[in-house]
Amino acid sequence: MAADEKPTRAEIEKYAREAGMTNLTSEQMDEFLNAAIYLRGLLKALPRDFALDEEPAHVFRAGPEA
């Protein structure tokens, strides 16, 4: 889910089925929708302006070589 998407309840129910989350009660489906909304805020704070040579910390090691 991208940061600019506003999920609807129907979309979330479809997503839940696709994700194998088929045992959710109606209340838990509300939680799932809220989780998606929460995530939009989180993703907005994640920068995307990386240089090409900024590799992910695949195997993270603390210290100057990280």
């Binding site: 889910m1 991208a2 997503y15 839940a16 994700a19 989350m21 939680e31 799932f32 809220n34 989780a35 998606a36 929460y38 995530l39 989180l42 993703l43 994640l46 920068p47 995307r48 990386f50 900024e54 590799e55 992910p56 910390a57 695949h58 993270f60 603390a62 210290g63 100057p64 990280a66």
Partner: peptide
């Protein structure tokens, strides 16, 4: 409630977070 947002994260979000991790670590050092 705290676990569920993980269902919506895309692979690219995880990788970008790992790139950010490297940047933040270098900055601290």
């Amino acid at each position: 409630r705290r676990l569920m947002p993980g269902a919506f994260l895309r692979a690219v979000d995880y990788v970008q977070a790992l790139r950010l991790r490297g940047r933040l670590t270098r900055q601290f050092n």
